[in-house]
Design a protein around this nucleic acid. Sequence first.
DNA 1: CTGAAAGCGCTAACAT
DNA 2: ATGTTAGCGCTTTCAG
Lengths: 333, 333
Amino acid sequence: MVTIKDVARVAGVSIATVSRVINGNHQVGDACRARVKKVIKELGYRPNSNAQALVSKTNSTIGVVTPKLAMTFFGTLAAGVEKTAREQHYKLLMANSMYETESELLAINSLRDHNCQAIILHSEYSDEKTLIKLAAEIPGLVLINRYIPAIANRCVWLDNVAGASEATKFLLDKQHRQFAVITSIYQNGDPGARLTGIRQTLTAAEIELNDEAIEESTANIEGGMQAVQALLAKNIRFTALLAYNDLMAVGAIHALFAAGLRVPEDVSVIGFDDLIVARACRPQLTTMHYPVEEMASYATKLAIELSTNPESVGHRTHLFLPQLVERESVTAV
Amino acid sequence: MVTIKDVARVAGVSIATVSRVINGNHQVGDACRARVKKVIKELGYRPNSNAQALVSKTNSTIGVVTPKLAMTFFGTLAAGVEKTAREQHYKLLMANSMYETESELLAINSLRDHNCQAIILHSEYSDEKTLIKLAAEIPGLVLINRYIPAIANRCVWLDNVAGASEATKFLLDKQHRQFAVITSIYQNGDPGARLTGIRQTLTAAEIELNDEAIEESTANIEGGMQAVQALLAKNIRFTALLAYNDLMAVGAIHALFAAGLRVPEDVSVIGFDDLIVARACRPQLTTMHYPVEEMASYATKLAIELSTNPESVGHRTHLFLPQLVERESVTAV
DNA sequence: CTGAAAGCGCTAACAT
DNA sequence: ATGTTAGCGCTTTCAG
């Protein structure tokens, strides 16, 4: 391994000078700088990041903690962070929390041990207190997809209530009056917010949403199928179905067709997230686009800014809005 | 920040002793070890990874280089690595290569600078020479989804030829005799191998596959649609369609239905990869399952083993076989 | 503009 | 069983 000493020796300068040219320090003579650069190239020298991190107490690394990288949503999130990080010459340290409070904390700590400059955290299960404490300790910590008033300016989140409301209004505009909802059994966080948006909008339109017409299941394709089967078994009548997310919506479409109902002719279905599955299913899914990648990119910039200059960020929060993407799964009654 | 010195001072021992208990070294008295552990807990001490990495010249970190994390396939790959890495208390350093030779090299080097213990590389565009050289320099380097004879024991790959062959045979068994193929415009690597598998099998069955019946396009949903539209426009007759991957297969199904053809009644479609989209589309896709996660996990173990004990690995290569998953998009003629 | 020297926090001989 | 000490490769004063 070629070190800074080797470069210094070959170039006939001190290691301090080499360090200066590495870091683009301007106080080096032109001739000297050129010579050092030449030697660096010849020797194929690359600075040891760990040594740099040790002395400078910061690592040009962004940490990302998500529940499960294999899920499209989190893969896209990580990709958004990576893109922005790479543009600014940062590396990505990843840790999955596997949807567990304990391993989430473990993950965060392991990132801290590496002296990550900033951390992007998608936390669903840690309580607010823990997160607030963490935010106080880690200047470059940003929460994505969660809002905590006490640290509002560290939160990059989506207005799920408004999104679900818009989806509902869209259906209302299409003259739908009989609604059903399939949602996640876990009602904290996103599912709860989206259900709230639906309820508010329906109430405002003076349309009743019976509890019977709300079916809970797991938030995946199978869950969507099961939920619709349950709805059908209960003889619930609906022309419009609001799904918690795209995966459930896709499952719903499968179950609907299996039961002899056509989408959108007999039932209109609307999803949420706009993952790739939305374009894979037939009919292609009308859904609310969740700008994950954009938000991840924004969060990364924010985290870097925060870690560099905590004062600069101010007290505003960072709220994004989902946008309706009209495809084929919704039609007027 | 609390350091090893603080712990030593409070516990009334030397830093060497603290270091020993951190690293589970057995030569420490029970009483002493207990006291140190208590102090570590009280002070909330966590060792600085960078310092550890600097002196031990290895970082309990696995590097992963993939083209694009946002794609399901690579997200799943990364997840597989992460899972195994976490089980063995390693962290994940990610870098995307964005499908470019140059940034691929950049990505690898940045991981090396961090002293990653092992690197899992999904490389499509770097030439063999570069990769062989890299493998010689980095003991813990493992290639995933690529086979290079000179470094066979560093390659974890899939038998694409056999997979495509099996898919073709399956169609043959279902009495199909009129075939069409949609594949990627980039014929190096996987697409080429899969096409070879198809060709060999068809030739062996004495069935002609006219060049006209092979349509190239981009390897995504849109590409699949375009390819099928082109096939239809040329009036190619086929009852079975082999797609390079699931994404193209899904696009094909969309285009087929749009043209008034039913899947599988009029045309059977088979995919490759078994991504989530395969279960999202209707009919659900019959496809060859690519055990990405399993392979990623295997590659990770191999990489760790290699980095620890390069001799132990032997000269065998690490070949996986895709498996047919029968769903709804194929039927007998 | 350049060099000498003092550490960053930790591990690993080498002593005791 | 425990302590002392010499670095790991680098950045950053402080001198010159």
